[in-house]
Design a protein around this nucleic acid. Structure first.
Length: 270
DNA sequence: CTAATCACCTGAAGGC
DNA sequence: TGCCTTCAGGTGATTA
């Protein structure tokens, strides 16, 4: 489900609601979801900071971290008062705070994870700089691109160089940049690489402004849907007319993922 | 090194 | 109604 804009929306809401709260207790309903990689007890620890890198939510406690990845269907849902039936369908872990509020990690497909670690870096070893990190420069981005002989769709989806992009926003960024997803990354002209960088930042910022995209499962911590799915140009728009040239948007299987593009607008560089 | 294919899971949707 | 296949905002391991 969630790519950078959805995770950012979750993080902003959590920052405003639970920083400073102290964990009273927690219950794990599905064992594989909670990965305890250090011996600290999180009970009576206070949430000091909340951050994000790529698609990872980073929760700093007094002497360890909780790092959450939502994968496909994970949701972090806040509650003000402890619900009577907390073991509802697909609830995997529930946390309660000392003031009686708390949050539930709900995850239909069970792919999501909550890691308890001494340092967030333990989970982020293979995660590159965040796609909207102000420290990421266009020069650095172009250097990454110049070194990659992968198809550009694979490059953008790979979290190792730049993190946060997923299937939706990759297709949307490549459409806006008029670059075919099968283009060889290093063979894309410098000006186009520059354009991909700018479009990546703009597409992600616009999606954050719209509170993320809801395809089916995504909800923010208050249970609200995103709005950005109303503005897709190519994602799930196969069979419809291209907004630029009126050609029919195609959907193919590429790099193992459903891939949407305009066959006329998007040029292939090889 | 890169690419392709599973594996992990559940549920929705479409074909017959 | 029901059975079967395919597909889904992701990533990590394995195979070639």
């Amino acid at each position: 489900m969630p790519e950078l804009p959805e995770v950012e929306t979750v993080v902003r809401e959590l920052k405003s609601k639970i920083v400073g709260k102290t964990i009273e207790d927690y219950t794990v309903f599905w064992h594989k979801t909670f990965v305890k990689k250090c011996d600290r007890d999180i009970k009576q620890q206070t949430i000091r900071e909340i951050g994000r890198q790529g698609k990872y939510i980073l929760i700093k406690l007094d002497n360890c971290f909780l790092v959450i990845h939502l994968r496909m269907t994970g949701q972090v849902l806040l509650f003000e008062q402890h619900p009577n039936e907390i073991e509802a369908a697909h609830n995997r872990v529930a946390f309660t705070f000392t003031d009686g509020s708390g949050f539930i990690f709900n995850d239909t497909r069970k792919f999501g994870r909550i890691y308890q670690v001494n340092q967030a870096d333990e989970v982020l070893e293979k995660v590159g700089i965040d796609a909207i990190d102000p420290n990421l420069t266009v020069t650095q981005f172009k250097t990454f691109m110049g070194k990659s002989r992968k198809p550009v769709k694979t490059f953008l989806m790979d979290q190792a160089s730049v993190s946060g992009m997923g299937n939706i926003y990759t297709d949307e960024v490549l459409f806006r940049s008029k670059v075919h997803p099968a283009s060889v990354t290093s063979k894309i002209p410098a000006l186009k690489q520059h354009l991909i960088f700018e479009n990546m930042q703009q597409v992600l910022a616009f999606a954050i402004k719209n509170m993320g995209s809801t395809i089916s499962d995504y909800r923010d911590p208050n249970g609200n849907l995103g709005n950005n799915q109303k503005f897709f140009n190519v994602y799930q728009q196969q069979g419809k007319e291209c907004v630029q040239c009126k050609s029919i948007i195609e959907k193919i299987r590429f790099a193992g993922r459903g891939t949407h593009f305009c066959p006329k607008c998007q040029k292939i560089y090889k």
